[in-house]
Design a protein around this nucleic acid. Structure first.
Lengths: 248, 248
DNA sequence: ACCTGTCGGTACGGCAACGTACAGATTGGG
DNA sequence: CCCAATCTGTACGTTGCCGTACCGACAGGT
């Protein structure tokens, strides 16, 4: 597949004018996103930005006690490395690959150069920043008010949206780190979803069985976040990889 | 006081080159920030941005059930109206005045015009955006992991930082909306702080008695957020109004 | 001086998630 | 083929906050 075709499965890149994207192509390198690969380390200057094509990255905040919570999910709808856009160079949060896939990398230098040269790139990334900010905010409210099984369902949906197919690798242990709760609490919530026939899982492999049902089981946060992404990145930035759009 | 002097008590404006700020001055109007004044309404296009000079604004996220949580605190270190910078025009969150004060307003049109003309303004506001994003993220982790009295102490410190003097108006009821908990829970936490001699309060007026002790009682989030603000907005953007720096 | 509304202290049972722990099931490597 | 590691189910007592409720203290208006 040509790099141009590849690039179009990232929704930020897809939203750029064709001419802009073509100019930028030589600076983009396709590389795999391997499980647990660290894309952004707290306090360290970012060497590159990443436009995920498939797979999912998570942004975490870690407390002094070592406990962590997921702050945001980043997939083909966005970019890892906003601090290079915003000027901070580094960030207090950590970003790592939570579901393996592929991404287009661009070194920090060229990225800043293109940012200065291509107003369209700046414009779309600022919109993405607003959407991300909203996602983080909504997540925060979610943690206060919604039950584990609602949050669990939301999380599975967000991942499902950014993945090809209905299966992905995910242990309870891992999900408990994302949601910031005990492993046992996840087991209970996940079991509830499994008994209801919404998902199936076995030794770290989750299968989404009833997508619509899962949406019912999730809290409104899922819908609200998606609505805001659509509003801000309308047109060029649907969440699901278009080739695999559910219920086309 | 001249508008220029006024403007300098907002840390974003103070960080601008003198010439830039002077050019912008005619577009800035000083107006009071009255208690509960709404500066940004969910879904409505922003008419103006606000650079607070004193007082505190809160950004809230409201759930379907009507319950709310504070997402971020905005005072003299920042600006209300980032969606005008980021391009979304409106926002899903609500921003309103939580402690009365004064602010410099600028209409949306002129603001966008200055943004295009003055790279320094853009640069500093992007840095502020990153700091705000970090604040929201940290808050989210905080909600998961820290006790009410820690969060309560943190909140009081954040407000104290943005206010002149050691007293401000604040009922338990109101604080419970900010922290997203019951009024009774706030009463318990606040009483704990009062018994420890860190604060005093009476019928809606809080007095900070032992600032250092309060910092001890707060979770690390307070320190982390402040550190990140300093890192990003270093130099021109201290939190506390300089004329009233504690322990000079 | 009273009345009314606001503010804060406190109490009760309830519940969701906690920390911890153990055991069964499955898988992969030697 | 067996051992070790991994993954999941489940259990126990504990804790922090919930919802609700009631009461006393105080302030401001009339």
């Amino acid at each position: 597949m040509s790099t141009l075709r590849l690039a179009r499965s990232n929704r930020v890149l897809a939203a750029l004018p064709r001419a802009t994207l073509e100019r930028m192509l030589p600076a983009l390198q396709a590389r795999p996103l391997t499980l647990r690969m660290i894309l952004q380390e707290p306090g360290l200057p970012l060497a590159a930005v990443v436009f995920p094509l498939s797979g999912v990255a998570s942004m975490l905040s870690t407390a002094a006690t070592g406990r962590s919570v997921e702050i945001a999910t980043i997939g083909c709808e966005g970019m890892v490395g906003l601090p290079l856009l915003l000027g901070g160079q580094s960030d207090a949060g950590e970003v790592f690959v939570q579901v393996a896939g592929q991404g287009l990398f661009m070194h920090a230098g060229p990225f800043k150069a293109w940012l200065a040269k291509e107003p369209a790139l700046m414009r779309i990334l600022l919109l993405y920043t607003q959407a991300l900010l909203m996602q983080v905010a909504q997540c925060s409210a979610c943690t206060s008010y919604h039950t584990m099984s609602e949050r669990c369902a939301r999380w599975l949906l967000q991942t499902h949206d950014r993945v090809r197919g209905d299966e992905f690798i995910l242990t309870h242990e891992f999900l408990s780190l994302m949601l910031g709760v005990r492993r046992a609490t996840v087991s209970e919530a996940a079991n509830e979803l499994q008994v209801s026939g919404l998902i199936r899982y076995h030794r770290g492999i989750v299968t989404v069985l009833d997508r619509a049902g899962l949406e019912q089981a999730a809290c409104e946060c899922y819908r609200l976040i998606n609505r805001e992404f659509r509003r801000l990145l309308r047109g060029g930035a649907k969440l699901k990889p278009s080739a695999l759009e559910p219920n086309p």
